[in-house]
């Protein structure tokens, strides 16, 4: 479903150094592909390239066999969930989710029902009128997932969405994420700093280092891969 081929990006640092990044990977419908690796390796850059927030120099991004690399962020059939600031602080929970369906907020009855269903699925029913400031960190990320659910896009990009949460809450949200991705047959890329998240969420995991996908393998195999020096060093430092 999601296919990335020779996706090239050159990062120009302020010190004048250029770093070339080149990505190749794919994710199937219903799959959560975890992406791990050291900081500054290019994990978030990859998501920003797929989402269209950064311009790729060359390469192909294909979603459902359609090339999307020349489309603007709003035109790409995907949803991104960020580490924080996924919600507008002045809008209530319902409106924050509704914006995912229609930015003008002109909703049909069916769309309103759909939002209520999504909120119920994520145990957020009854909190519709609350502002993000009145929610816990975990609830806020659930709202972001609810919005991803109602948007019905084929690809879900998650940029360290659970980084600020405690272990129990992370586990709970990963379980929710897994069932949503499976139900909706989305292809999801989950960037995480924690190898445990990858173990919980994904059958397959990619390891990104110095702007390249160094390895893609079954998560448990990848995390036990002691032959690859970069993986060994990364796991030793986490």
């Amino acid at each position: 479903m999601l296919h990335i081929e020779q996706l090239k990006f050159v990062y120009h640092s302020q010190s004048g150094l250029n770093t070339e990044m080149l990505f190749n990977l794919s994710a199937a419908p219903g799959e959560i592909l975890s992406i791990i690796g050291p900081s500054g390796g290019g994990k978030s850059t990859l998501l920003n390239l797929i989402a269209g927030f950064l311009p790729a120099q060359s390469g192909i991004i294909r979603i459902d066999d359609k090339s999307v690399q020349n489309l603007g962020p709003a035109q790409r059939p995907l949803t991104m969930v960020f580490q924080q600031h996924n919600l507008f602080p002045h809008l209530d929970l319902f409106t924050n989710v509704a914006l995912g369906i229609n930015p003008s907020l002109k909703l049909t009855d069916d769309q309103q029902d759909e939002i209520h269903d999504a909120l119920k699925k994520l145990s957020l029913d009854g909190l519709e009128k609350r502002k993000p400031g009145q929610l816990s960190g975990g609830q806020r990320q659930r709202v972001a997932l609810a919005r991803a659910l109602v948007r019905r896009q084929k690809v879900l990009l998650l940029d360290e969405p659970f980084a600020a949460l405690g272990p129990a809450l992370r586990q709970e949200l990963i379980e929710i994420l897994k069932s949503l991705v499976e139900q909706k047959s989305m292809a999801a890329l989950l960037v995480s700093h924690q190898p445990e998240d990858a173990l919980l969420a994904s059958k397959r995991t990619a390891f990104i280092h110095q702007g390249k996908v160094c390895a893609i393998d079954e998560t448990s195999k990848l995390l036990n891969n002691t032959a690859e020096k970069a993986i060994r060093e990364y796991l030793g430092s986490v």
């Binding site: 709003a74 035109q75 809008l91 930015p103």
Partner: peptide
């Protein structure tokens, strides 16, 4: 910094972005 990418990904532009996001903030 916080909301531009989010607005872009939600196709929230122009008048809708102004009245829903920019003006209240």
């Amino acid at each position: 910094m916080r909301y531009d990418n989010l607005c872009n990904s939600l196709a929230l532009h122009g008048w809708n972005k102004w009245r829903r996001v920019d003006w209240p903030l």
